[in-house]
Design a protein around this nucleic acid. Structure first.
Lengths: 163, 163
DNA sequence: GTCTACTGTCTTGACGTCGAGATATCTTTC
DNA sequence: GAAAGATATCTCGACGTCAAGACAGTAGAC
């Protein structure tokens, strides 16, 4: 079993605070670190398609909604976990870039509906394929059974958050 | 096996892009989500001690260094993966808050050494204990053996990044 | 010793996010 | 049908980060 950065981190803490049980770090520090590396991989994948991660997040939410690829800003901010001010700003820039379109909601005059343009659909589909390619490489160190085990353990940890 | 948010995400993608193998999302989307929840838990733990996550990151790096809890800004930015401009700003504010101290490096006139004050040491120790408490709760759904399995699988995924 | 390349830290300007609040509209209750 | 509260979106100012570059000091080659 090779030692990695987190093993060194844990060893340093044991040295400095031998009174504490730092085992939780073995799992959770690795989760944080892996997430950071994953962010980089995502950024790289999207850059090839001229997209920023935040752009992908929004386009992807629309893409997953299925035809006609249209959601309200409210639905988008719930899907992407950002605040409303941020979402307004994002939609502005995506519309500027020609990737989404805004139109008034015919059923609610307070509301707006945001939809993918043809260009937005093409971009997000291409970027998503690239992302999956890179994610597969990232997971190449694990066999199919190990991946399922890992997914299962992570699901257990996430369960309390899905209320 | 209960279905969670990620299962729904994967199901939506299978519906929309049945031509793609989206299995990687089962692992990696969960890693990202768990990291987000972990960030919140950290934020909450630190807030009780009047610390922001970024403050904790810096103080912690100094704490782990052991007596005399002193590192250069360069060492700190490598430990925390931020840019030098960011680190300058962080040290400024931590010094302002009385949690760290800056002094010229006696061996290198370009250099500076940053060390924990007594107040900084107390704060970071208390916050760290709180963090571990919360992390343990987060992991409560898994038994000790499962946690070790999970840590091992994550270590395998991280190995390629530790150069 | 001097030139050149490197290192360590700080400065600056642009950017994206957040949080609070403003505005308009819808819904519920009486 | 009017008032009160809820909801949807947008506006604005503050903040922390980054990237690029400025500046001072060090180290190696000759």
């Amino acid at each position: 079993m090779n030692t990695d950065e987190v093993d060194r981190l844990v060893a340093a803490w044991r040295q400095e605070r031998p009174d504490l049980d730092v085992e939780p770090l073995q799992v959770l520090s690795r989760v944080s670190r892996l997430a950071r590396h994953l962010d980089r991989a995502r950024r790289a994948a999207f850059a090839q398609h001229g997209l920023e991660p935040w752009e992908f997040d929004v386009l992807t939410a629309l893409r997953r909604a299925g035809k006609p690829y249209e959601l309200s800003p409210g639905a988008l901010l719930r899907a992407t976990l950002v605040t409303s001010g941020t979402m307004t700003n994002r939609i502005d820039r995506l519309a500027q870039a020609g990737l989404v379109r805004r139109r008034p909601d015919p059923e609610d005059r307070r509301g707006v509906l945001v939809s993918l343009t043809a260009a937005g659909l093409d971009r997000v589909d291409a970027a998503f394929e690239d992302l999956l390619r890179r994610e597969r490489e990232l997971l190449a160190g694990l066999g199919p059974q190990e991946q399922r085990t890992l997914a299962g353990l992570l699901r257990t940890l996430l369960a309390p958050f899905d209320k």
